[in-house]
Computed example of a mutant assay.
Amino acid sequence: MDTIFGDSTAVFQNCNIFLRKQVGNEVVVTGQKRSRDDNTGFVIQNSRVTLTDELRSSLPRGVKVFLGRPWGKYSRTVYIRTYLAQGINPQGWTYMDEMKDGNFVDYAEFENTGPGANTADRIKWRGVKNINRNEASKFTVRNFLQGGSWIASAGIPYSLDL
């Protein structure tokens, strides 16, 4: 079951994402879908992804927790400076049956922390990568959402940059 899903342009900043046991053997933070020419995607920035006690205790019974999965070609999710708790599957990303090769995804990580942030065993798809500061800056509120011109009027706290 996917926790955050759909096709939109969204930056989740300074969020606490609590994953809980769901129906089935997979818990997935994001399920994103976009068209080839869309500039949409999910960005999780300066946040915390943690597991409830119930979910953590179900891991030995075969439940797996993933950062995301594509709902179709061109899926995009970026984690920036986010704490990833113990229990995140080391491969990081999973697939739906029609997307087994993952060659069209855009999944990136930048300076994440925590026991689930080790990228050494991430799935080996062409579109899964660690990015540098310059690449990560493309996914900030300023650049990805052009938020400098409209978010202030909403009266919510946010950061334009990394």
Rank of each mutant, 00 (worst) to 15 (best):
G116W: 00
S35K: 13
S35R: 13
E109T: 09
T40C: 00
Q32M: 14
E98Q: 12
R122V: 03
K33N: 11
E109Y: 10
N118R: 05
D38V: 06
F110R: 03
V141D: 03
T140L: 04
D106V: 01
R122P: 00
K100T: 14
N112V: 02
A136L: 11
D53C: 02
M99R: 06
K138R: 15
E111A: 14
V49T: 06
K100A: 15
R34N: 06
V49A: 04
V141C: 07
A120T: 14
P115T: 02
V65G: 03
I44K: 01
V78Y: 04
L67M: 12
V105D: 08
G62S: 06
D37I: 06
S57W: 05
I88K: 10
N118H: 03
T77K: 04
I123W: 00
G127R: 06
K73H: 12
R69Y: 14
F110W: 15
N89I: 03
V128I: 12
A120H: 10
G92Y: 05
R122N: 08
W71L: 14
N112S: 05
T40F: 09
K129V: 02
S47T: 05
Q91P: 00
S35N: 15
S47L: 13
T113Q: 08
G102I: 12
R126G: 04
N112L: 01
G68Q: 05
N130A: 10
K138V: 03
G102M: 10
V128K: 02
R126S: 12
K100F: 13
D53N: 12
T82A: 09
S47C: 14
D37P: 00
P60N: 02
A108N: 05
W71D: 15
T50E: 13
F104T: 15
R76T: 15
Q45C: 04
Q86A: 15
K64P: 00
F104M: 15
I44N: 01
A120P: 00
G102R: 09
V78W: 07
M99L: 08
R76H: 07
L55I: 07
D97T: 11
N46Q: 07
D37T: 13
R76I: 04
T50S: 13
